[in-house]
Computed example of a mutant assay.
Amino acid sequence: MTRHDPADVRAFFTERAADWDSRFPDDGPAYAAAVTGLGLRAGDRVLDAGCGTGRALPALRAAVGPDGVVLGADLTPAMLEEAVRAGRHRGAALARTDVTRLPVAEGALDAVFAAGLVSHLADVREGLAELARATRPGGLLALFHPIGRAALAARQGRQITADDVRAEPRLRAVLAASGWRMTSYVDEDARYLVRAERVRGG
């Protein structure tokens, strides 16, 4: 399983932050649809883990309403600056932090939304376990990407490899080892969306 050094991840996204949204201008509806599929309720407390430029934040805020809490966490200051510049921080709290060390109490969250996060974690199991720690039993997790694994690999000029942690069998096992139970898995050209539930007593 590939490990990603946080400093390298930060450098990668720092270089790309300024034009990130202009490179992927049509992803908005896919983010909104994924948030809808998470099944959030008014008043929920939700984290956008690896929020980047904040493309999911407005939809998350709309889903939880004025009594809910939306937190966006990202490792890269330049990405958070772009979220603010785009006005997506309104109604959300932004934190510059590694999602493997969240400034959130145990069981404080009702749900976690994570777009593209798994591919950039230094240790996938550790990262998913930290998200589980911060989420109440029965809470929800959505791992999302606006295109599927094959389409993303084609865009990047590479092949899907056998050790891809986002493949269903591997991801199901890692989630289970991290305090989650996978409830659905979709990997198609137009969407990658995995949903999981925080295991009770796990």
Rank of each mutant, 00 (worst) to 15 (best):
A151S: 13
V64C: 07
T14E: 11
G201R: 12
L94H: 08
L128Y: 11
E81V: 11
R10L: 03
P169H: 09
R191I: 10
L80W: 03
Y31A: 13
V46I: 13
M79S: 04
R166Y: 10
L94P: 03
M182W: 10
D44K: 09
D164A: 12
V186E: 14
P29I: 11
A154Q: 07
Y192H: 09
D67H: 13
A86V: 00
A154N: 00
V70I: 06
M79N: 05
Y185F: 15
D163Q: 12
E126P: 00
E130Y: 07
I160A: 03
L152Y: 08
G179V: 08
E106N: 11
D19F: 04
V84P: 00
R155V: 00
V124D: 02
R149Y: 08
G28Y: 01
F13W: 15
A111W: 12
L117Y: 09
G68W: 12
V199H: 00
A63S: 14
G157Y: 08
R85E: 02
A18P: 02
V35D: 09
P25S: 01
L141G: 10
A59H: 15
D26A: 13
L131Y: 02
V165D: 14
P58N: 08
A11E: 12
Q156N: 13
R172D: 13
G50L: 03
G107F: 01
R166G: 04
D74I: 01
F24K: 13
A78F: 02
G91I: 07
T100N: 00
P137K: 12
V104E: 08
R85N: 06
L152G: 05
T161G: 15
G43L: 13
A177W: 01
G116P: 07
T183Y: 08
M1F: 05
E81P: 02
A73I: 00
